[in-house]
Write a protein that binds this DNA or RNA. Structure first.
Length: 393
DNA sequence: TTTGATGATTAAGA
DNA sequence: TCTTAATCATCAAA
């Protein structure tokens, strides 16, 4: 492509007489003046002010100004070609959305709002579980939020100050060179663009910090701690006393959770694990079943009180062959104390999980050979029975 | 360090 | 939504 035709340049003017202008050192000419302008930034403020004043009064200033105007006219088209800062891109939108989701978009307020926002941002959606870890998570999240907003404010202020500074500078410069409002606006746009990219980096870093915190929290949540002895006993006691139907209702789970000092979901997990592991290896759990059976029987005897014969304990030890020692009592689950058992003397039930047909109970009259497999009331039906739960021992 | 126990998570199915 | 079954990851005893 051919280069655009340039208008013929006028012949350079004859060299100006090498006479020192007023206020400038002797021997100054236009070249010297330009050199002094270029070097003005290297001087001290006072020196620069004095030099600026001298330049403003320089006799060559009008001529220099008109030359600058000419150059400006030639370059102004390139300024018009520069695009303004476009709409926020997809990445910025994504970052903003994420910060909004993490409760980062607004500075933290004291009081309920802050904790509510932190709770809403708690992974897993269980803001009330695992108090210590959650409070730690909230504290860290709050720290990130504070840092983010403090940095954001700093950048915004710096942007404002720098914009004002540059605007003032350009207005000041407009006295010695042509500076159009459009140019000032363009410069402001450039500055905003730079600060915009810094803000994006800040948002990116904040998102990364939140993600890292979340990952760490989730890892920590995955770390397990064995349940307390009491919790294990409460759960095992229920499990082995409901082997025929080891599916506690939601209400019972809550009660077990309260008694064991664990959460309802932990109770659910425990029963899920226990059922499958028991089913897989009943023999292995036989001893445990015997222990809890005996323990429950002792509890029942104690609850029934001295002087009353605990006939249900007979035949419990040693454990008979088969999964469990069969004996059925009715147990009333008390919310505020140990369970109360009522003996059902004429039936026996033995366990429970049949490899082909699932969890079942065989109930047999103690005075006659084994009868047909019977069903045991589900937990729901137990509640119908006034929370008196049929218990197999 | 190894190994079994155990709490938690996840995908699939009812 | 709950359960099962498989699996992961950690704990704790040997």
């Amino acid at each position: 492509m051919d280069a655009p035709q340039r208008p013929p340049r006028p012949a350079p003017p004859p060299p100006a007489p090498r006479r020192s202008p007023p206020g400038l050192p002797p021997g100054s000419n236009t070249g010297d003046v330009l050199q002094q302008i270029m070097a003005i930034t290297d001087q001290s403020l006072d020196e620069a002010q004095a030099r600026k004043h001298a330049l403003n009064c320089h006799r060559m200033k009008p001529a220099l100004y008109s030359v600058l105007c000419e150059i400006k006219e030639k370059t102004v088209s390139s300024i018009h070609g520069i695009q303004e800062v476009g709409p926020p891109d997809a990445q910025l939108l994504r970052l903003d959305n994420m910060l909004l989701a993490e409760g980062m978009s607004r500075p933290e307020k004291r009081g309920r709002g802050a904790s509510a926002a932190a709770n809403a941002a708690t992974p897993g959606g269980h803001p009330n579980e695992g108090g210590l870890e959650h409070s730690d998570y909230r504290a860290k999240l709050s720290q990130i939020r504070q840092l983010y907003h403090s940095e954001l404010e700093k950048y915004e202020q710096a942007c404002r100050e720098f914009t004002m500074h540059v605007t003032n500078l350009l207005q000041e410069q407009s006295r010695i060179r042509p500076v159009s409002p459009a140019e000032i606006e363009h410069m402001v746009g450039i500055i905003h663009g730079k600060f915009h990219s810094i803000q994006m980096q800040l948002k990116q870093s904040t998102c990364e910090a939140v993600l890292a915190l979340r990952a760490r929290f989730l890892d920590a949540r995955r770390k397990r701690q064995n349940f307390s002895k009491q919790a294990t006993e409460v759960l095992n006691e229920y499990f082995y006393s409901h082997l025929s139907n080891p599916y506690p209702s939601e209400e019972t789970k809550e009660e077990l959770a309260r008694r064991g000092g664990i959460t309802v979901s932990q109770v659910s997990n425990w029963f899920g694990n226990k059922r499958i592991r028991y089913k897989k290896n009943m023999r292995k759990f036989q001893e445990e079943a015997t222990i809890y059976t005996a323990k429950t029987a002792v509890d029942a005897t104690e609850v029934r009180g001295p002087g009353r014969q605990a006939s249900c304990t007979s035949g419990q030890s040693p454990a008979p062959p088969g999964p469990l020692a069969p004996l059925t009592v009715l147990r009333t689950w008390r919310l505020d104390g140990p369970p109360v058992f009522t003996h059902t003397p004429h039936t026996e039930s033995c366990l429970s999980f049949q490899p082909r047909s699932g969890w079942q109970v065989k109930q047999m009259p103690t005075t006659s050979p084994a009868g047909n497999p019977g069903s045991v009331p589900s937990d729901a039906s137990n509640q119908v029975l006034g929370r008196a739960e049929k218990r197999t021992l």
